[in-house]
Design a protein around this nucleic acid. Structure first.
Length: 748
DNA sequence: CGGTAGAATATTTTT
DNA sequence: TATTCTACCG
């Protein structure tokens, strides 16, 4: 990226006043333009706190802050309001919570929390879960919220209600209303609430809106093609005063309509603001001519788009390759083999390879192949660290002591670890809280509890639970690490897991250790390290694993969605089959097909040097094999691809097909008997600190940490009772680790 | 109330 | 196949 800015890029950087739209094709140096633009503002004397920059991930925001800082050499870069819509608005909402009937320690519900809440409502109403599928109800509510149709508004939508009647879902409106109410009494917001509550706040509190309108002199929003209606509305609220608003995006890369994203926000920007300056970044600095050609031909099939033509001055490069495989296993295996060969032949690093797929579940087959060959890899996404059961359990304690009314947290732990409060009791509590329209905690604290038909021993247990939480609450202002340790000790969560050291529990214990490590880091690193701050950060921090690992060399595995904004030298796109990609559910409507095509476009344009596309003729789904065929998208570009391998492969495959079936079976048996490696447990198995003898540590000792790699101990600190070691890692620099929790092994 | 075994169900994509 | 739910027994 050592090129200087081209004219169009330069104009995009320097035109800071008034509404600006930057249409930035893939690889067009967009990130650089955005960064330079912000740096330019800072250099021209704008104070960081007067700039609002909304990005698509928090990771991108942090990197950008650092870059702006290094360009400007101005500490002000760190005071820019930069982050995702959700995290910035959460920050604002915590400040202004009182105005909208919340307190500033409100809880943020993730999707699992929301669905659990909805399931509870459906249970309470004794509705048929076949008709009222909690997941479906949740996505419907989410859709409505993102389109600014509140529960009260919904009651006025005659056609929607009529529709529910036809579908035998008359109760939906009441579920929606109840869900909103429970979130309120629980002092909790789901992801969508973070947006709509902000919108409502600004709508109903003019003085607050004015405050932020004045504060944000310059507003910049990246990936505007993936904003939804609420986000668009808030942006319009905020930019009204100064109108220094710059939106950046590429309509051809809009891939999030399932969560309400609407390309039209971008397409209609020019109609809303009258004097919009438009810049088109059409030169691609990333990919070869061959890649750009295929991408262009593909996206041309889409009707709804802004006209532009991406071009590149990079080398011609190789043709994109197409492979056909017998089944998904073979696809995974051969892909791993190809990567191994390529690493050897081209002398490249593993981190220059990415394997992309449509659904998370597809990672398994490739993982097997990579593992077999000892190629280290890293799966992005999937089940995030903070979504694991054992982690959520502990976090639920932290949530509950800061916000007693968080019913979801309470229900999660009222009987975990089991303390004799069973389902029947919980149901009774739930029922009365529901009837009184209040939180369960309020019930526990009122005389209502005496009216319940619960025997005295259970009542006593409830009483003890209440006291336990109150006891924890008194520690709320102490150090976060101390508090959480106290909780774990008092509840005996760890002790109980240790009683039965099976593989699963060992894994849980390791994850809990990892959590404590994070907590310790957090309380050392952050100045305001209250429980609320911690919860806030992790609730919106999508991927814990992904940040820490960036120094180890590994092949990246991720969904096509997650690959947005990234680039790799070599990209492998797997499972390009009808029914999978485009997804079965997206083949009906033209707009859906177009979005899937954009997703393919995103995948292809991640590559710098080459892309390999593959599909399999048979694929495992729900444990059974189903036939599949190559995607209709391939047909659109097939004349540009290198298909040499297809015909060659087909002749051998027929003879092998029977053999493969047997092989598959044998492999399966083998895997079962040998120490089974569960991909979900990933890298966590490298060492088990529960058994490690820590007395052997001394300065100069070499250790191997499962995240930071190999390093040498340079200091040992016993001052506060917890042994801390300072380690200089070869690749990750200096780290302070708590021996009690860090996962590493002693080497040599 | 707690634990477990066998049955049912799920695969789009994510802040 | 892998995870979650349900029914039943102690």
């Amino acid at each position: 990226m050592a090129y200087t800015l081209n004219n169009e890029q330069l104009s995009a950087v320097q035109n800071t006043e008034g509404p600006v739209i930057i249409i930035a094709g893939p690889g067009s140096g967009k990130t650089r333009v955005v960064t330079e633009r912000i740096a330019h503002l800072i250099n021209s004397g704008t104070s960081g706190q007067n700039i609002l920059a909304l990005t698509f991930t928090n990771k991108a925001a942090n990197e950008m802050k650092k870059r702006v800082h290094s360009i400007t050499n101005n500490q002000d870069a760190f005071s820019i309001w930069m982050g995702t819509f959700h995290s910035i608005f959460a920050k604002i909402l915590r400040k202004e919570a009182i105005k909208i009937g919340y307190t500033n320690n409100f809880t943020i519900y993730d999707n699992e929390d929301s669905i659990k809440t909805i399931r509870r409502i459906i249970d309470n109403k004794n509705l048929d879960k076949e008709i009222y599928n909690p997941k479906y109800i949740f996505s419907k509510i989410s859709f409505l919220k993102n389109h600014l149709i509140s529960d009260t508004k919904y009651f006025e939508q005659i056609d929607l209600i009529k529709n529910d009647k036809i579908n035998n879902q008359e109760e939906f409106k009441n579920i929606y209303q109840q869900y909103v109410k429970i979130c309120q009494t629980s002092n909790a917001m789901d992801f969508d609430d973070l947006l709509i509550k902000t919108y409502d706040l600004f709508k109903h509190h003019v003085e607050t809106l004015k405050k932020y309108q004045t504060l944000f002199q310059y507003i910049l929003i990246d990936e505007y093609q993936d904003t939804n209606k609420v986000q668009d509305a808030i942006v319009k609220q905020l930019s009204k005063k100064h109108q220094n608003i710059c939106i950046v995006g590429d309509d051809s890369q809009s891939i999030y309509s399932f969560r309400g994203a609407n390309i039209n926000n971008m397409l209609q920007f020019k109609n809303y603001f009258k004097t919009v300056k438009e810049f088109k970044l059409e030169q691609n600095y990333r990919s070869t001519k061959n890649i750009v050609k295929v991408a262009n031909i593909l996206i041309e099939k889409n009707k709804n788009k802004i006209n532009k033509r991406i071009f590149t001055n990079q080398e011609e490069g190789e043709k994109i390759k197409l492979f056909e495989y017998y089944n998904d296993r073979e696809e995974g295996d051969k892909t791993a083999e190809k990567i191994q060969e390529s690493i050897y032949k081209n002398k490249t690093n593993r981190d220059e390879y990415a394997i992309l797929y449509r659904t998370n579940s597809q990672s398994k087959a490739v993982e097997d192949g990579l593992r077999k060959r000892g190629i280290s890899y890293k799966i992005f996404g999937g089940l995030s660290f903070y979504q694991r059961k054992e982690i959520k359990d502990i976090l639920a304690y932290l949530k509950l002591i800061t916000n007693h009314h968080d019913d979801t947290a309470l229900l999660r732990i009222i009987n975990y670890p089991s303390r004799g409060i069973g389902l029947t009791t919980v149901e009774k509590l739930n029922e009365i809280a529901n009837k009184e329209q209040t939180s369960i905690w309020s019930i526990l604290n009122s005389e209502k509890i005496d009216q319940l038909k619960i025997n005295s021993s259970t009542k006593n247990k409830l009483h003890n639970f209440k006291n336990l939480i109150c006891d924890f609450h008194t520690k709320i202002n102490e150090d976060l690490f101390t508090t959480s340790q106290f909780i774990v000790k008092k509840t005996q969560i760890i002790d109980k897991l240790k009683e039965n050291l099976n593989e699963e529990n060992i894994n849980r214990l390791e994850n809990i250790s990892e959590l404590f490590n994070t907590i310790k880091f957090f309380s050392i690193k952050e100045t305001n390290n209250s429980i609320t701050d911690f919860i806030n950060e992790i609730s919106l921090d999508e991927n814990h694993d992904q940040k820490e690992i960036n120094n180890t060399e590994h092949v990246s595995l991720m969904t096509l969605h997650q690959s947005k904004g990234l680039e790799f030298k070599y990209v492998y796109i797997l499972g390009v089959e009808n029914g999978l990609f485009p997804s079965q559910k997206k083949t009906k409507h033209q707009t859906d097909i177009e979005e899937e095509r954009r997703l393919f476009y995103v995948g292809i344009t991640r590559a710098i040097k080459n892309v390999c596309i593959s599909y399999a003729l048979n694929r495992f789904k729900f444990g059974t094999v189903i036939n599949s065929s190559k995607s209709c998208f391939i047909e659109e570009i097939e004349h540009l691809l290198n298909i040499d391998n297809i015909t060659k492969y087909n002749t051998t495959y027929k003879n092998q097909s029977l053999l493969n079936k047997n092989k598959h079976y044998i492999n399966k048996q083998k895997n079962k008997s040998s120490l089974d490696y569960n991909p979900l447990k990933k890298l966590k198995k490298i060492s088990s600190d529960i058994y490690r003898d820590k007395r052997l540590l001394k300065i100069g000792q070499k250790i191997k940490h499962n995240i930071f790699g190999i390093g040498e101990i340079t200091n040992i600190d016993l001052s506060d009772g917890n042994e801390k070691i300072k380690v200089i890692f070869q690749n990750s620099g200096e780290k302070i680790l708590l021996t009690k929790f860090a996962k590493f092994e002693i080497i040599e």
